[in-house]
Simulated assay, not measured.
Amino acid sequence: GDTIPVNKLDMLNFNMREPLGVIGMITPWNSPLMLLTGTLAPCLAIGNTVVIKPSEHATASTLALAELIMEAGFPAGVVNVVTGTGTSADDALTRHPDIAQIVFTGSTATGRRIATNAAANLVSCQMELGGKSPPVVFADVDFDHAVNGVVSGIFAAAGQSCVAGSRCFVEASIYDRFVDALVERARRVRVGHPLNDDADMGPLALSAQLAKVESYVASGVHQ
């Protein structure tokens, strides 16, 4: 911390960092380990304890990590994993009066509900929600690399990412050429089993996800 000057000789004024306490973490089904460990490590390093609630669609990797944490010698109760379905388990965790902060990655709609729960206990939230992340392409770009970059930015993981490049800004002077090249490159994306070497893109993760994407496609065509 810092020592802060005060105008009385017999007083010392300083600030000191200390752990918040118990952190509630709710992680998504896409990239569950990466999105968990990026926040888990600093939380533990500062001295907090955590309760992790993974997505009900992707619990195995989090439970495996918890076993490794136990094997590494962390004291019991420092890292805890609670599994369960979305709304009921999320609400139980985010409404709990002993949670000092909430970390959430997921949809904007769920984020609003969690923020409401947190507000009731006056605790802060750290959230990564849905976005519309645009790559920006200027006329002096390496053209072929830019096309490949935009394609990989949206088709990687079948687009199931909060940082997917779901729209694109292109400088007017190369717009038509870029769109033609992008369409041609997208038509060559090979869909198949994700473990096959000749597949560029695997399937969507869930039937509910398929229905959501189909509704977006229908909405786009209609509009």
Rank of each mutant, 00 (worst) to 15 (best):
L206F: 01
S55Y: 10
I26F: 01
N117Y: 14
V50H: 06
I23N: 00
R113H: 15
E171M: 07
A120C: 07
A120D: 12
F14D: 03
G130E: 04
P5A: 15
V51R: 12
E171T: 14
N7Q: 13
V163Y: 00
R185L: 08
G47E: 08
N15Y: 05
V150S: 04
L63G: 04
A89K: 05
G220E: 01
L36M: 08
D2E: 09
N117S: 10
A76G: 07
G111S: 14
P75C: 11
V78F: 10
C162P: 02
D140F: 00
L20V: 11
V191E: 00
A157F: 01
L35N: 07
V217F: 07
D140N: 13
G21T: 11
F178W: 09
V136L: 07
A139I: 06
M34K: 06
S61E: 14
D180R: 07
T59H: 06
S166N: 09
Q209E: 04
L33N: 02
L63F: 15
N15G: 07
M127H: 07
K212L: 10
V141Q: 03
E71T: 10
F104W: 09
V213D: 00
A146C: 07
A186M: 10
F169C: 14
I46N: 10
G106S: 06
F74H: 12
G153N: 09
A100Y: 03
G192P: 01
D90C: 12
I154H: 12
A120Y: 03
D10E: 14
E128W: 06
L204G: 00
G192M: 00
V6L: 10
F155K: 02
A186V: 09
V6P: 01
L33F: 03
E184L: 13
L35M: 12
D90S: 12
G165H: 10
P28A: 15
V221D: 07
R167V: 10
P42W: 11
A76M: 13
S55G: 02
R188I: 01
V136F: 12
L122M: 14
F155I: 04
S173L: 05
N30G: 04
A156T: 06
H193M: 01
G149C: 08
I26E: 08
T59L: 07
S166V: 06
Y175W: 10
G202M: 01
T83S: 06
T105W: 04
V217W: 03
M25S: 01
V82T: 05
L122P: 02
G165Q: 11
G131A: 13
A199G: 02
D197Q: 03
G24H: 08
A199Q: 00
L122K: 02
V137R: 09
F14C: 09
A119V: 03
L65F: 09
M11P: 00
F143W: 07
I52R: 09
A120T: 08
V163M: 13
V213H: 03
V51T: 15
K8A: 07
S161R: 14
D176M: 05
R17D: 10
V51G: 05
T27E: 12
R185N: 01
P135L: 15
M34G: 06
T59A: 15
L35V: 13
L93P: 06
I154Y: 06
L40E: 05
E18P: 00
V123G: 01
C125Q: 05
N196Q: 12
Y175V: 14
R177Q: 09
L35K: 04
R185E: 08
C168F: 01
G86V: 08
E171G: 02
A64I: 03
S152C: 00
